[in-house]
Design a protein around this nucleic acid. Structure first.
Lengths: 127, 127
DNA sequence: CATTAAAGATTACACATGTAATTCAGTGGC
DNA sequence: GCCACTGAATTACATGTGTAATCTTTAATG
């Protein structure tokens, strides 16, 4: 199972945001919020390629990187693992725990409500 | 911020389940689901004490370990971090992502629905 | 065409983590 | 009182991770 570290995840995020892109591209977009040396980002790009999280295509002197895994797929995998480990596979306690400490925005709440409704619908159909 | 690794978390789980308890206790309860050497568990206990996740009290020759952080508190912290990193701090997309791949049990769904209702209630009171 | 600058590849190094083995110290049994 | 056993403390060692620096190659420039 693809395991992406924290620092690596920051790199993946900008690539997911817009791909394909060059290393220079990633570096400049990352510098908006992180304070990383150019070499650091290159190392992370290399590691992500080794891990099979990124692929690239030569474009002249530089490389064009693309994700090998979709953001949604990774989010799904990671959420599953997280919820299994910390909440015995149940999602409701996670939401409860999160809400106890953090504010849930109105938009978030509305979306959640809709989701619950949809899931109920599905469940009825299954019967 | 208290950072507990995966292996360490398994140890914390059994201690949260029932504390205080001795190392022998933890070892035997862990052997139900993990295949770890006794020495491994002791190492993890030591690291958790160093990190300030566990404290102990001498009881004769052995130690009685207790958590320094409540399971709920840790869950809250970890959930917050996770959701911030993977879902930009929004909980609904996490639930959506999770539900797309895993089954949400009826109980879980009901709990979720209740939660949403409660949160809506709170939000109205805030106005 | 020789030189420099820039891209990627390789190497570095300290700390974390998984997984133990070895050492030390105290307690109970003979 | 000495020895063995058991629990804790220390040490071990490979791999992962954060954070770069150095080396190598190649393309552009004078």
């Amino acid at each position: 199972m693809l395991d992406i570290s924290n620092a690596e995840l920051d790199v993946m995020q900008v690539i997911w945001q817009q791909a394909p892109c060059t290393a220079a591209d990633v570096i400049s977009r990352l510098q908006q919020h992180k304070d990383w040396h150019e070499k650091t980002v290159k190392t992370l790009l290399n590691r992500l390629v080794s891990k099979g999280a990124l692929s690239y295509q030569k474009q002249g002197r530089a490389y064009l990187y693309s994700p090998c895994i979709a953001q949604q797929d990774y989010q799904q995998q990671a959420s599953g693992n997280f919820i299994d480990r910390l909440f015995a596979g149940r999602v409701a306690p996670l939401v409860a725990s999160f809400a106890r400490k953090h504010d849930v925005s109105a938009a978030d709440l509305a979306e959640l409500k809709q989701l619950v409704a949809d899931l109920e619908q599905e469940q009825q159909e299954d019967n």
